[in-house]
Simulated assay, not measured.
Amino acid sequence: MDDQTQLELEAAAFRRLRQHLMQDRTDVQNIDMMNLAGFCRNCLSRWYQEAANERGIDMTKDAARETFYGMTMDDWKANYQTDASAAQQETFKDAFAQNVGDKS
């Protein structure tokens, strides 16, 4: 497979993942993703923002998050986010420390 085809396939898979998280599985909570997989929509949006910034594209955290939520973070929380249990929050502390550290 040539490099351009690989790049296009990776981009297609990325777009499908974004659609899956943004439209198909709005019921999946970020805290569960972080606790189980070590990343969530916020991580994806941060990586997207970092990639843009590395290429000289000025992108804010909020603009990057809209790419993975399809709406503002406040709208997402109002429409889809549920309250996390004490156990989820405790597990999240460890998952966040291991996978994100002091980045926000």
Rank of each mutant, 00 (worst) to 15 (best):
D75G: 03
A11F: 14
G70T: 04
N30T: 05
R41I: 06
M34N: 08
R16Y: 07
C40A: 12
Q29R: 03
G38N: 10
W47N: 11
C40Y: 02
Q89L: 13
A51T: 11
N99A: 10
D27S: 11
A12Y: 03
S104L: 08
T72F: 03
D2A: 02
E54D: 15
M33C: 12
Y48T: 07
D74T: 10
V28W: 04
A11R: 15
A97N: 05
Q81F: 01
M73Q: 14
F68R: 10
R65L: 10
Q19S: 13
K93C: 00
Q19A: 12
D24I: 01
G101F: 04
D3H: 10
M71Y: 09
K93I: 04
G70Y: 05
W76M: 08
A78W: 03
D27P: 03
K93L: 03
Q23Y: 04
A86W: 00
F92C: 10
H20P: 00
A86E: 12
K93Q: 10
M59A: 10
Q49F: 08
T26E: 04
Y80V: 06
R55M: 08
M1V: 06
Q6K: 12
A37L: 15
F14C: 01
L36I: 04
T26V: 13
M73N: 14
E10V: 11
R55T: 02
V28G: 00
E8W: 05
D74W: 01
E66G: 05
W76I: 04
A11M: 14
R46G: 05
F39D: 03
E90M: 02
A84L: 03
D24Y: 01
T26F: 00
E10C: 13
Q4E: 12
D32H: 06
R18I: 12
R65Q: 12
A52T: 03
Q98M: 12
M34C: 08
Q19C: 07
E90P: 00
E50Q: 12
D27F: 03
S85H: 05
E50Y: 04
F39N: 03
T5N: 06
L9W: 06
I31G: 02
Y69A: 05
D75L: 13
A97F: 01
Q49N: 08
G56W: 09
T91M: 13
G101P: 05
T91L: 14
T5L: 11
Q19T: 13
A63F: 00
I31N: 01
R15F: 05
F39C: 08
D27K: 03
V100P: 02
D58Y: 02
Y80E: 07
M34L: 15
A37Q: 09
R55W: 01
G101K: 04
Q98N: 14
F96R: 11
T67E: 14
M34V: 08
R15N: 10
M73D: 14
Q88M: 07
A52C: 15
M33A: 06
N53F: 01
Q88C: 04
M73W: 14
E66V: 13
M1H: 06
G56F: 09
Q29C: 02
G101I: 06
D24P: 00
N42T: 03
Q88W: 04
V28N: 00
T5P: 00
Q6V: 12
L44P: 07
A13W: 05
N42K: 06
Q19W: 12
M59F: 08
F68Q: 11
